[in-house]
Design a protein around this nucleic acid. Structure first.
Lengths: 336, 336
DNA sequence: TTGTACGCGTTATCAA
DNA sequence: TTGATAACGCGTACAA
């Protein structure tokens, strides 16, 4: 019995003016006198009017909704990016429609299909593993050529022409490896659950390049499956190879490495140093706290959103790629 | 240059039939012959037709979008619920529009305002702290009386008449406390960053009741601020009071308690047992792994979504409240 | 300064 | 079995 929804037409009826007068008054059109504007606006508040977004969208072709496609919501990094996106979007008056592709190409296709049916003004997305493995991007390119702006973040591909926001994955592990070398490590193990993604490859390259540059050091790489227990593999390697440092290609792997090594009796960081990725809640609360490469997930989300909205509101911009620099956050799992 | 969007009208033009015929054919109306149905459908695929969701929504008053309002996306529990929601929703052909109230009443109002403008068929939400402190729920009740179905989960209030999904917070801490007592603990500290919420109060009550039942034991409660470092307070208490067990009212607090106690040289669980909340990624990866009360966040999300969709598709149901039972997951921070 | 009339892309009603 | 036509709620060119 409280304030029921009211339409423009009904409001016009009450005020005994035409629909268009009400519409224009509400939109502050110069054609309407201040007097009626005021009258209409107060009535709008009194009768609790608010425009129907669907009708408005249908008319203006703008919904003020941004589609977000994320491959894996279990990843703390994804959540940080999502927070950045949501915050920036809502600050700019946009809402977000969040979808998860579960790293699957077919789900990704279905999502883009749905999102291209008029609901969203633009799309923020990170490619699924499967898309990257299959190197299939037609669905994304179709979307773009259909006129829906897309901003890719984190997992991107050069075969897709659009705005992009990435981190310098190569540099991140290159720097991390150098730090470990400087602190005396000589047997650095690289553990990666994301070897199939472009990002995973770049992180590996940064590691490998630093070793090669130093000369005389052997690469040790452990490819694992995401969200799978790898304690047996790691235990074997730790015992056999006199590993004195570990770089993990994502946060969870870094945390698990700490736990496994600790359980085996290794002192961290005295005997084994560990560096992980993502300055997330896990790293801050591990024991000891994990030294990580911060990807500034929130910034990525923020910048990606800004770029997308910028494109929505200003046509004919050139596509650009923004690189967010990573930062090494030193905590308890590395020496000095 | 690829498959451009096409409308019903254009498709009708191509096929030289009327718009309504195309619409009906696509919707498998009994009025249309199989022959033309087939013809229309293949043409629809060929010309890449898909309905404009806005127009469809405007017409049918259904958008197949569920609004989700969550107070705090940093909470691992929220994320688990969100996953449950997303999964169930997408399984049932719904999409979700995710919003975060940041525990703020004014943001919560703004969000509901926006969501009530036609975009969503129904809303899933958990109340913000501020709403619970202020005991202000008019915005939610207005929404409901405006005809938008709402399902509340986790943080609910009896002054809001709608479907609800909750856990038995009282039982959860009651059981946890009993377990600790049984294992020999006599000085159990309860740490809570959520004392202002109904849930926080119930969790406290479960703890207090178990102590009272046992008789002769003193309550020890530490109220803290969420996401704030409480090591000083805890250190003081741990040193002064010979605490032998801790119950933390949420996951992050439990993890922090482990770290602080460990840093002070206490052996866990030998000297201090710890039980936390939420069977999340943090608890599984702490050192030692945290014994937790699993709230089955994904189930909560799933059930809440099912209830909402059920209401959307079947009118005039009575409101019900579903209680999801918690489970104690014993891991490394408790004895035997 | 205000009002009329049309269209956005659909579905639904009614006639043919 | 098919087709005109109105309507959903809004914005806007154009007329008044």
């Amino acid at each position: 019995m409280i304030n029921k929804k009211i339409t423009l037409k009904e409001l016009a009826g009450i005020l005994k003016v035409s629909v268009s007068t009400v519409s224009k008054a509400l939109n502050d059109s110069y054609e309407i006198s201040e007097a009626t504007k005021k009258k209409v606006k107060t009535a709008a508040i009194k009768y609790n009017y608010s425009p129907n977004l669907l009708a408005q969208g249908l008319k203006t072709k703008k919904t003020k909704i941004l589609g977000v496609v994320i491959p894996d919501m279990r990843a703390p990094f994804s959540i940080r990016v999502l927070r950045g996106i949501e915050k920036e979007a809502s600050a700019q008056g946009y809402n977000i429609l969040t979808c998860f592709s579960d790293e699957s190409l077919s789900k990704e296709k279905a999502i883009l299909d749905m999102l291209s049916q008029g609901n969203v003004d633009g799309i923020l997305m990170s490619l699924s593993k499967e898309s990257q493995v299959e190197q299939y991007f037609d669905h994304v390119n179709t979307l773009i050529s259909n006129g829906i702006p897309v901003t890719l973040f984190d997992r991107v591909d050069e075969r897709i022409q659009c705005d992009k926001v990435i981190i310098n994955d190569f540099d991140s592990t290159y720097d991390a490896t150098k730090l470990l070398l400087k602190s005396g490590a000589r047997n650095i193990l690289f553990i990666s659950p994301i070897s199939t993604t472009t990002i995973g490859k770049n992180r590996y390259r940064g590691y490998a390049f630093a070793l090669e540059e130093r000369g005389n050091l052997k690469e040790k790489v452990l490819h694992i499956e995401e969200y799978r227990d790898f304690s047996d593999d790691l235990t074997r390697i730790l015992k056999a190879d006199k590993i004195d440092a570990i770089i993990a290609a994502n946060e969870l792997t870094g945390i698990s490495a700490i736990n496994i090594a600790t359980r085996l009796g290794f002192k961290i960081p005295e005997q084994i140093s560990i560096i992980g990725f993502t300055n997330g809640i896990l790293s801050m609360n591990s024991n000891p706290p994990l030294t990580t490469i911060s990807q500034h997930g929130k910034d990525i989300g923020k910048v990606a959103t800004q770029k997308l909205i910028n494109r929505l509101e200003n046509k004919n911009l050139d596509f650009t790629t923004t690189v967010i620099e990573t930062t090494l956050i030193k905590r308890g799992t590395t020496r000095n």
